[in-house]
C-alpha cells in the first residue's frame, strides 16, 4: 500500500484528482486548463485500479476548483474523486457530478452542424447522465459518450 502511494508524491496544499481513466488523463488536463497553471503539478498514469483497469492521478499544488469547473471533467472521468488537501491532510472529499448542460468542451458529432461550420461555441443539454449523452442546442442531434471529441483549449472559440 505504502509503495503505491509514493508513486506520486504528496502535496502540502491543493487538490488531488484520483480515479481518472488513464486513457483520458490528457483530456482532463485540457478541460481543466492545467497547462496554463504555474503551480506544481505532478501526475501518475497507468496505475492499477480495480474499478477502472488502469487509472491516472493528478496532484495540483495550491489550486482549488469551483464545482462548475470540476464538473466539466465528468464527461471524461465520471468516477473521479477529489481530495482537497491542507497541510498534508485531506480536509474534504468530493465527487464529480455530470452537469445539466455543457457549454464548449465537446464537439458536436454532426458534421453538418453549424458549430462545425462556423465559429459557434457548442451548447448541449445532458439527456442522460449514466452513459452520458448530449443533445446539441443547435442541430438537435445526440452525441453519445463513445463519440465525444474534446476540443483543445486553444481551438475553442
Amino acid at each position: 500500500m505504502k509503495d503505491k502511494q509514493l508513486i506520486v508524491s504528496a502535496i502540502k496544499n491543493g487538490t488531488v484528482i484520483d480515479h481518472v481513466p488513464a486513457k483520458n488523463l490528457f483530456k482532463v488536463i485540457t478541460i481543466l486548463n492545467l497547462d496554463s497553471i504555474d503551480t506544481q503539478i505532478t501526475f501518475g498514469t497507468n496505475l492499477e485500479s480495480k474499478k477502472l483497469g488502469s487509472k491516472a492521478i493528478i496532484k495540483i499544488s495550491d489550486k482549488y476548483f469551483l464545482d462548475e469547473e470540476i464538473n466539466r471533467i465528468a464527461l471524461v472521468a465520471p468516477q473521479a474523486k477529489l481530495n482537497i488537501i491542507r497541510d498534508y491532510e485531506v480536509i474534504e472529499k468530493r465527487v464529480v457530478e455530470v452537469p445539466d448542460s455543457i457549454i464548449g468542451i465537446v464537439k458536436c458529432v454532426n458534421p453538418m452542424c453549424i458549430t462545425n461550420q462556423e465559429e459557434v461555441k457548442t451548447k448541449f443539454s445532458v439527456i442522460s447522465k449514466d452513459e452520458v449523452s448530449l443533445k446539441c442546442y443547435y442541430c438537435e442531434k445526440i452525441t453519445h459518450q463513445d463519440q465525444m471529441t474534446i476540443y483543445n483549449v486553444n481551438s475553442q472559440y
Binding site: 453538418m112 453549424i114 459557434v120 446539441c136 443547435y138 442541430c139
Partner: peptide, 8 residues
C-alpha cells in the same frame, strides 16, 4: 443548408 443555422 446547415443544421442549427436558424437557432444560431
Amino acid at each position: 443548408p446547415t443544421e442549427g443555422a436558424a437557432r444560431y
